[in-house]
Design a binder for these strands. Structure first.
Lengths: 124, 124
DNA sequence: TCGTCGTGCAATTATGTGGTTGCAGATCGA
DNA sequence: TCGATCTGCAACCACATAATTGCACGACGA
Protein backbone atom coordinates (compact mmCIF):
# COMPACT_ATOMS: atom_id res chain seq x y z
CA UNK A 1 0.00 0.00 0.00
CA UNK A 2 2.91 2.28 0.37
CA UNK A 3 3.47 2.67 -3.34
CA UNK A 4 3.74 6.43 -3.06
CA UNK A 5 7.04 7.58 -4.53
CA UNK A 6 7.73 10.15 -1.86
CA UNK A 7 5.16 11.71 0.49
CA UNK A 8 1.61 11.65 -0.77
CA UNK A 9 -0.03 11.97 2.65
CA UNK A 10 -1.33 15.45 3.44
CA UNK A 11 -0.38 15.22 7.11
CA UNK A 12 -2.97 16.91 9.35
CA UNK A 13 -2.53 20.64 9.67
CA UNK A 14 -2.07 20.53 13.42
CA UNK A 15 0.61 17.87 13.05
CA UNK A 16 2.53 20.13 10.70
CA UNK A 17 2.27 23.06 13.08
CA UNK A 18 3.20 20.90 16.02
CA UNK A 19 6.35 19.97 14.15
CA UNK A 20 7.06 23.60 13.39
CA UNK A 21 6.30 24.65 16.94
CA UNK A 22 9.52 23.36 18.45
CA UNK A 23 12.48 25.69 18.48
CA UNK A 24 15.06 22.99 17.85
CA UNK A 25 13.08 21.54 14.99
CA UNK A 26 12.62 24.95 13.44
CA UNK A 27 16.35 25.57 13.50
CA UNK A 28 16.99 22.16 11.98
CA UNK A 29 14.47 22.89 9.27
CA UNK A 30 16.01 26.24 8.46
CA UNK A 31 19.43 24.62 8.34
CA UNK A 32 18.21 21.98 5.94
CA UNK A 33 16.58 24.71 3.91
CA UNK A 34 20.02 26.17 3.34
CA UNK A 35 21.60 22.86 2.38
CA UNK A 36 20.82 19.15 2.80
CA UNK A 37 22.70 17.30 5.51
CA UNK A 38 22.80 14.01 7.38
CA UNK A 39 21.98 13.56 11.06
CA UNK A 40 25.65 13.06 11.86
CA UNK A 41 26.67 16.17 9.97
CA UNK A 42 24.04 18.18 11.84
CA UNK A 43 25.24 16.82 15.15
CA UNK A 44 28.50 18.73 14.66
CA UNK A 45 26.60 21.99 14.27
CA UNK A 46 23.94 21.55 16.92
CA UNK A 47 24.47 21.24 20.67
CA UNK A 48 22.47 18.03 20.90
CA UNK A 49 23.31 14.41 20.25
CA UNK A 50 23.04 12.68 16.90
CA UNK A 51 20.21 10.50 18.15
CA UNK A 52 18.22 13.50 19.29
CA UNK A 53 18.68 15.00 15.84
CA UNK A 54 17.54 11.75 14.25
CA UNK A 55 14.37 11.79 16.30
CA UNK A 56 13.55 15.36 15.36
CA UNK A 57 14.28 14.62 11.74
CA UNK A 58 11.86 11.72 11.94
CA UNK A 59 9.21 14.04 13.34
CA UNK A 60 9.81 16.51 10.54
CA UNK A 61 9.65 13.69 8.03
CA UNK A 62 6.39 12.49 9.52
CA UNK A 63 4.99 15.98 9.07
CA UNK A 64 6.10 15.92 5.45
CA UNK A 65 8.45 18.84 5.91
CA UNK A 66 11.66 17.04 5.00
CA UNK A 67 12.59 14.02 2.96
CA UNK A 68 15.54 11.66 3.23
CA UNK A 69 17.77 10.41 0.48
CA UNK A 70 20.40 7.71 0.76
CA UNK A 71 23.89 8.49 -0.38
CA UNK A 72 25.89 5.38 0.26
CA UNK A 73 25.74 4.76 3.97
CA UNK A 74 24.54 8.19 4.92
CA UNK A 75 20.98 9.51 4.99
CA UNK A 76 20.83 13.02 3.65
CA UNK A 77 17.83 15.13 4.63
CA UNK A 78 16.48 18.03 2.65
CA UNK A 79 13.72 20.50 3.42
CA UNK A 80 10.60 20.50 1.29
CA UNK A 81 9.69 24.09 0.60
CA UNK A 82 6.46 23.10 -1.12
CA UNK A 83 5.15 21.53 2.09
CA UNK A 84 5.75 24.75 3.97
CA UNK A 85 4.07 26.72 1.22
CA UNK A 86 1.11 24.39 1.31
CA UNK A 87 0.71 24.86 5.05
CA UNK A 88 0.95 28.62 4.61
CA UNK A 89 -1.72 28.55 1.94
CA UNK A 90 -4.08 26.51 4.08
CA UNK A 91 -3.50 28.83 6.99
CA UNK A 92 -4.25 31.92 5.00
CA UNK A 93 -7.36 30.30 3.62
CA UNK A 94 -8.73 29.65 7.09
CA UNK A 95 -7.86 33.15 8.21
CA UNK A 96 -9.35 34.95 5.25
CA UNK A 97 -12.98 34.63 6.25
CA UNK A 98 -12.62 35.55 9.88
CA UNK A 99 -12.04 39.26 10.00
CA UNK A 100 -14.84 39.85 7.57
CA UNK A 101 -17.33 37.71 9.45
CA UNK A 102 -16.28 38.98 12.85
CA UNK A 103 -16.48 42.57 11.73
CA UNK A 104 -20.04 41.93 10.64
CA UNK A 105 -20.90 40.39 13.98
CA UNK A 106 -19.31 43.26 15.84
CA UNK A 107 -21.21 45.78 13.75
CA UNK A 108 -24.45 43.95 14.44
CA UNK A 109 -23.72 43.96 18.16
CA UNK A 110 -23.07 47.69 18.14
CA UNK A 111 -26.18 48.31 16.09
CA UNK A 112 -28.18 46.45 18.72
CA UNK A 113 -26.86 48.75 21.44
CA UNK A 114 -25.81 52.00 19.77
CA UNK A 115 -25.72 53.98 22.99
CA UNK A 116 -23.57 51.50 24.87
CA UNK A 117 -20.90 50.46 22.44
CA UNK A 118 -18.27 48.68 24.52
CA UNK A 119 -20.47 48.06 27.54
CA UNK A 120 -23.88 47.17 26.28
CA UNK A 121 -26.49 46.01 28.76
CA UNK A 122 -28.10 42.65 28.49
CA UNK A 123 -31.60 43.90 29.25
CA UNK A 124 -32.76 44.30 25.70
CA UNK B 1 -1.70 51.34 11.26
CA UNK B 2 1.00 51.19 13.81
CA UNK B 3 -1.05 52.15 16.83
CA UNK B 4 -2.28 48.68 17.68
CA UNK B 5 -4.11 49.04 21.02
CA UNK B 6 -3.62 45.51 22.28
CA UNK B 7 -0.98 43.17 20.87
CA UNK B 8 1.92 44.93 19.20
CA UNK B 9 4.48 42.20 19.87
CA UNK B 10 5.15 39.91 16.93
CA UNK B 11 5.30 36.77 19.10
CA UNK B 12 8.06 34.39 17.93
CA UNK B 13 7.09 32.27 14.96
CA UNK B 14 7.69 29.01 16.79
CA UNK B 15 5.45 30.15 19.64
CA UNK B 16 2.64 30.81 17.16
CA UNK B 17 3.05 27.42 15.56
CA UNK B 18 3.27 25.73 18.93
CA UNK B 19 -0.07 27.31 19.77
CA UNK B 20 -1.53 26.13 16.46
CA UNK B 21 -0.04 22.68 16.88
CA UNK B 22 -2.52 21.47 19.46
CA UNK B 23 -5.71 19.89 18.23
CA UNK B 24 -7.89 21.30 21.00
CA UNK B 25 -6.50 24.79 20.53
CA UNK B 26 -7.04 24.59 16.80
CA UNK B 27 -10.66 23.66 17.28
CA UNK B 28 -11.10 26.48 19.77
CA UNK B 29 -9.54 28.89 17.33
CA UNK B 30 -11.79 27.77 14.49
CA UNK B 31 -14.79 28.11 16.78
CA UNK B 32 -13.81 31.61 17.72
CA UNK B 33 -13.28 32.35 14.07
CA UNK B 34 -16.94 31.62 13.48
CA UNK B 35 -18.12 33.76 16.39
CA UNK B 36 -16.65 35.26 19.56
CA UNK B 37 -17.39 33.50 22.82
CA UNK B 38 -16.43 33.41 26.49
CA UNK B 39 -14.62 30.57 28.22
CA UNK B 40 -17.80 29.53 29.98
CA UNK B 41 -19.79 29.53 26.77
CA UNK B 42 -17.15 27.39 25.11
CA UNK B 43 -17.19 24.95 27.99
CA UNK B 44 -20.73 23.97 27.02
CA UNK B 45 -19.59 23.10 23.50
CA UNK B 46 -16.28 21.40 24.28
CA UNK B 47 -15.78 18.20 26.24
CA UNK B 48 -13.23 19.81 28.58
CA UNK B 49 -13.58 21.95 31.66
CA UNK B 50 -13.88 25.71 31.67
CA UNK B 51 -10.50 26.07 33.33
CA UNK B 52 -8.85 23.97 30.67
CA UNK B 53 -10.45 26.21 28.08
CA UNK B 54 -9.23 29.27 29.92
CA UNK B 55 -5.68 27.97 29.86
CA UNK B 56 -5.77 27.24 26.16
CA UNK B 57 -7.30 30.63 25.50
CA UNK B 58 -4.46 32.20 27.44
CA UNK B 59 -1.96 30.32 25.28
CA UNK B 60 -3.70 31.52 22.14
CA UNK B 61 -3.73 35.05 23.50
CA UNK B 62 -0.02 34.81 24.29
CA UNK B 63 0.57 33.80 20.69
CA UNK B 64 -1.42 36.80 19.52
CA UNK B 65 -4.01 34.65 17.81
CA UNK B 66 -7.00 35.78 19.86
CA UNK B 67 -7.93 38.84 21.86
CA UNK B 68 -10.25 39.25 24.81
CA UNK B 69 -12.87 41.88 25.33
CA UNK B 70 -14.84 42.51 28.49
CA UNK B 71 -18.59 42.58 28.29
CA UNK B 72 -19.82 43.12 31.77
CA UNK B 73 -18.56 40.28 33.86
CA UNK B 74 -17.75 38.01 30.96
CA UNK B 75 -14.59 37.89 28.88
CA UNK B 76 -15.40 37.41 25.24
CA UNK B 77 -12.65 36.06 23.02
CA UNK B 78 -12.39 36.59 19.32
CA UNK B 79 -9.97 35.20 16.75
CA UNK B 80 -7.55 37.54 15.03
CA UNK B 81 -7.48 36.59 11.39
CA UNK B 82 -4.71 39.05 10.64
CA UNK B 83 -2.36 37.21 13.00
CA UNK B 84 -2.94 33.97 11.17
CA UNK B 85 -2.41 35.69 7.86
CA UNK B 86 0.82 37.19 9.13
CA UNK B 87 2.09 33.78 10.21
CA UNK B 88 1.14 32.35 6.83
CA UNK B 89 3.01 35.10 5.05
CA UNK B 90 6.13 34.61 7.13
CA UNK B 91 5.97 30.89 6.50
CA UNK B 92 5.67 31.27 2.77
CA UNK B 93 8.52 33.72 2.77
CA UNK B 94 10.84 31.26 4.45
CA UNK B 95 9.76 28.49 2.12
CA UNK B 96 10.08 30.44 -1.09
CA UNK B 97 13.85 30.35 -1.34
CA UNK B 98 14.35 26.71 -0.50
CA UNK B 99 13.25 24.74 -3.50
CA UNK B 100 15.16 27.01 -5.80
CA UNK B 101 18.36 26.82 -3.80
CA UNK B 102 18.06 23.11 -3.18
CA UNK B 103 17.37 22.39 -6.82
CA UNK B 104 20.56 24.20 -7.69
CA UNK B 105 22.51 22.19 -5.15
CA UNK B 106 21.04 18.96 -6.42
CA UNK B 107 21.88 19.89 -9.99
CA UNK B 108 25.44 20.64 -8.97
CA UNK B 109 25.72 17.29 -7.22
CA UNK B 110 24.48 15.45 -10.27
CA UNK B 111 26.79 17.39 -12.51
CA UNK B 112 29.68 16.24 -10.33
CA UNK B 113 28.69 12.61 -10.84
CA UNK B 114 26.79 12.44 -14.12
CA UNK B 115 27.14 8.67 -14.54
CA UNK B 116 25.80 7.78 -11.11
CA UNK B 117 22.84 10.05 -10.52
CA UNK B 118 21.10 8.67 -7.45
CA UNK B 119 23.92 6.41 -6.27
CA UNK B 120 27.16 8.15 -6.98
CA UNK B 121 30.36 6.57 -5.77
CA UNK B 122 32.78 8.38 -3.61
CA UNK B 123 35.88 7.05 -5.33
CA UNK B 124 37.35 9.80 -7.40
C1' DT C 1 40.18 -8.50 5.85
C1' DC C 2 39.99 -5.05 9.41
C1' DG C 3 39.06 -0.62 11.37
C1' DT C 4 36.09 3.29 11.07
C1' DC C 5 32.11 5.82 10.45
C1' DG C 6 27.17 6.38 10.08
C1' DT C 7 22.83 4.56 11.11
C1' DG C 8 19.05 2.12 13.86
C1' DC C 9 17.00 0.40 18.06
C1' DA C 10 16.24 0.30 23.06
C1' DA C 11 15.98 1.82 27.79
C1' DT C 12 16.05 5.79 30.88
C1' DT C 13 15.32 10.41 32.62
C1' DA C 14 13.55 14.95 33.24
C1' DT C 15 10.68 18.39 31.99
C1' DG C 16 6.59 20.28 29.79
C1' DT C 17 1.85 20.38 29.29
C1' DG C 18 -3.09 19.32 28.80
C1' DG C 19 -6.40 18.18 31.90
C1' DT C 20 -8.77 17.92 36.47
C1' DT C 21 -10.84 19.58 41.01
C1' DG C 22 -11.44 23.04 44.51
C1' DC C 23 -12.08 27.50 46.20
C1' DA C 24 -12.17 32.65 46.43
C1' DG C 25 -13.66 36.99 44.38
C1' DA C 26 -16.51 39.90 41.40
C1' DT C 27 -20.66 41.03 38.99
C1' DC C 28 -25.28 40.63 37.33
C1' DG C 29 -30.54 39.76 37.91
C1' DA C 30 -34.35 39.75 40.92
C1' DT D 1 -29.66 42.16 49.88
C1' DC D 2 -29.36 37.44 48.16
C1' DG D 3 -28.54 33.92 44.95
C1' DA D 4 -26.62 32.63 40.60
C1' DT D 5 -22.89 32.95 37.44
C1' DC D 6 -18.60 33.88 35.47
C1' DT D 7 -13.86 34.70 36.20
C1' DG D 8 -9.16 33.89 38.34
C1' DC D 9 -5.74 31.39 41.03
C1' DA D 10 -3.60 27.21 42.80
C1' DA D 11 -2.52 22.49 43.61
C1' DC D 12 -2.35 18.18 41.51
C1' DC D 13 -2.16 14.22 38.18
C1' DA D 14 -1.22 11.70 33.89
C1' DC D 15 0.86 11.50 29.80
C1' DA D 16 3.77 13.07 26.07
C1' DT D 17 8.21 14.19 24.60
C1' DA D 18 12.99 16.14 24.13
C1' DA D 19 17.20 14.59 25.32
C1' DT D 20 20.61 11.26 27.07
C1' DT D 21 23.63 6.92 26.99
C1' DG D 22 24.71 2.38 25.30
C1' DC D 23 25.09 -1.09 21.95
C1' DA D 24 24.55 -3.66 17.58
C1' DC D 25 24.58 -3.70 12.58
C1' DG D 26 25.97 -2.37 7.91
C1' DA D 27 28.66 0.04 4.55
C1' DC D 28 32.82 2.32 3.13
C1' DG D 29 38.16 2.96 2.78
C1' DA D 30 42.73 1.24 3.15
Amino acid sequence: MSAAPSEARPAPLTAVFAALGDDTRWQILVRLGAEPASASALSTEFPISRQALAKQLEVLRGAGLVEAERHGRELRYRAIGAALGEAARRLERVASGWDERLAAIKAAAEAAAPAEAGAERHRE
